[in-house]
């Protein structure tokens, strides 16, 4: 019995607590990201944004959540019930499980696995299934078109994202996320790899179906795209999944290019602030750019989107792999960053 407790029960409880410690703040962040988005876009539009529910409108996300929670879930008659119900769950689950490998501070990570960045890449490439399944199972042409657009878009931009991740990995010489952050002690990778950082960020916009690449939703032509038939909590799960993915992609950008939990300079006033706070601040900065882009740029046309992905980003990122690989080999960069 004692062996059962020390061998199985306590580790299980400990893992459960760690999961709760990641998921609860994440869901709160998602709720307040929506508030942040509305406030930022309101400021850019010279409006006030939500300001009625609670002080400064701070309770608005909770009110929105309650509204969605108490609505009725409607499943269309022609829908493929099983797939229709699984799709939002899949989207939401995938947005959460990626956080298992994200290091929020030095050693503060649930699973410090060898292939961390590949795991993140794999999980983010699975995200397309939720949308594709929702689009197909809804049995509606708008939802179907949205799902197809989304699938093509995510597959296209994943390719250049993969190549940029490879060019970062060539510099670091490891697939472990903590190693990637530690390799940026001397200089964040955004400085030597600036063009790749920009391409990566734009690709994450396309990967999360955010403006200016939000063609899968395109409310003007597809009503709301893949989630048009969803209501109540099923819709809320898509919504939460999309915003959690935004935070995840910002975290990936932070880890790969902005030095993760590291302070900008390794001197006194900066090192007083603990690592997780730097990490959160950098994620917030990336999220701000997400919202800023949304308020600034018009939506791309679909052929322009495909052109950008395949004819601009793919050649540049392929060239980046070759050039970075050559430089790393010639100047022995990997031993410099170790």
């Amino acid at each position: 019995m004692a062996e059962f407790w020390t061998g199985y029960a306590w580790p299980a409880i400990w893992i459960g607590l760690q999961v709760v410690a990641i998921v609860i703040p994440l869901l709160l962040c998602v709720a307040y990201l929506v508030y942040f988005e509305r406030k930022v876009i309101a400021a850019i539009h010279l409006r006030r944004g939500p300001n009625v529910v609670g002080p400064y409108g701070l309770l608005q996300p909770i009110a929105d959540g309650m509204k969605l929670f108490f609505k009725e879930t409607v499943i269309p008659t022609g829908a493929n019930r099983g797939v229709f119900i699984i799709a939002p769950m899949l989207t939401f689950t995938l947005a959460l499980i990626a956080w298992a490998v994200i290091p929020v501070g030095d050693g503060l990570v649930i699973a410090d696995i060898n292939v961390g960045i590949l795991y993140l890449f794999a999980i983010s490439s699975l995200g397309v299934y939720g949308i594709l399944m929702a689009g197909w199972a809804s049995n509606s042409k708008y939802a179907f078109l949205g799902g197809l657009r989304s699938a093509a878009q995510m597959v296209s931009y994943e390719v250049s994202m993969g190549f940029i991740i490879i060019s970062v990995l060539l510099v670091v010489g490891s697939l472990n996320l903590s190693d990637i952050v530690n390799a940026q002690r001397h200089a964040w990778f955004v400085i030597p790899l600036f063009p790749m950082a920009v391409i990566f960020f734009v690709s994450t916009l396309a990967e999360t179906n955010r403006h200016p690449f939000d063609l899968p939703e395109a409310e003007a032509e597809l009503v709301s795209g893949y989630n048009v038939e969803y209501s109540a909590m099923a819709f809320a799960l898509f919504f939460l999944g999309e915003y959690a993915n935004m935070i995840l992609m910002s975290a990936m950008t932070t880890i790969l290019f902005l030095g993760g939990w590291l302070p900008p300079f390794n001197v006194a006033p900066f090192t007083w602030i603990p690592g997780p706070i730097w990490f959160a601040a950098k994620i917030a900065f990336c999220l701000f750019i997400f919202l800023w882009v949304r308020a600034t740029f018009p939506r791309y046309r679909y052929d322009q989107l495909m052109r950008l992905g395949w004819k601009v980003f793919l050649p540049i990122s392929l060239a980046a792999v070759v050039i970075v690989g050559g430089v790393v080999l010639a100047f022995d960069i990997q031993s410099l960053v170790k």
């Binding site: 590949l118 794999a122 490439s125 699975l126």
Partner: peptide, 8 residues
Amino acid sequence: LVVVYVGA
């Protein structure tokens, strides 16, 4: 396997 077969 996940990236290539499932993801693409």
